[in-house]
């Protein structure tokens, strides 16, 4: 009986320690996972903005007639997002946050009629980026959905 009693106290004390350690660990692990998820979202948003900016710059440097097709992902970290492109850069918005990727200064249009405007890129679509020379002799970047 004495041996059994001593064993039970050891056991209960061990369980107490395990609960204390598990309790503190679970909070740390949960917070860490949230942080990792958020960093993943921010990273993906940044990469998408840079990917689009790079495609536009490549199209621009490729000269008249050069084109690149890009596909936007359906979401970022399970959230909706929106990308706006204008001559100042590529702007991305998702989950109440925003970022910008810079572009080589150039004229941006959403149609072949070459009107300077903001072009909005939506999730899960394919876009064709085209370098087209305008009547003014300048190269325009035309971004159109396919």
């Amino acid at each position: 009986m004495d041996c059994h009693g001593a064993l039970s106290i050891d056991f209960l004390f061990s369980i107490l320690m395990v609960i204390v350690v598990m309790g503190s660990l679970s909070t740390i692990v949960s917070d860490g996972m949230d942080m990792a998820k958020q960093s993943d979202e921010l990273g993906n948003a940044r990469m998408l903005a840079e990917y689009i900016a790079e495609a536009i710059d490549q199209t621009y440097s490729g000269g008249n007639g050069h084109g690149i097709r890009i596909v936007t992902p359906p979401q970022i970290g399970g959230k909706y997002y929106m990308v706006t492109v204008n001559s100042s850069g590529v702007f991305i918005k998702t989950g109440g946050r925003g970022g910008q990727a810079h572009l080589v200064p150039q004229k941006i249009s959403g149609s072949l009629s070459l009107n300077s405007s903001d072009v909005i890129l939506l999730p899960g679509k394919t876009y064709y980026i085209l370098n087209k020379k305008g009547e003014d002799g300048y190269s325009w970047i035309v971004i159109r959905p396919e």
């Binding site: 860490g32 960093s39 970022g99």
Partner: peptide, 16 residues
């Protein structure tokens, strides 16, 4: 974790 999150926002330059 919080400090790393703040640094991450700066590393990615994605802000509220």
């Amino acid at each position: 974790i919080g400090a790393a999150e703040g640094a991450s926002a700066d590393n990615m330059a994605i802000y509220p």
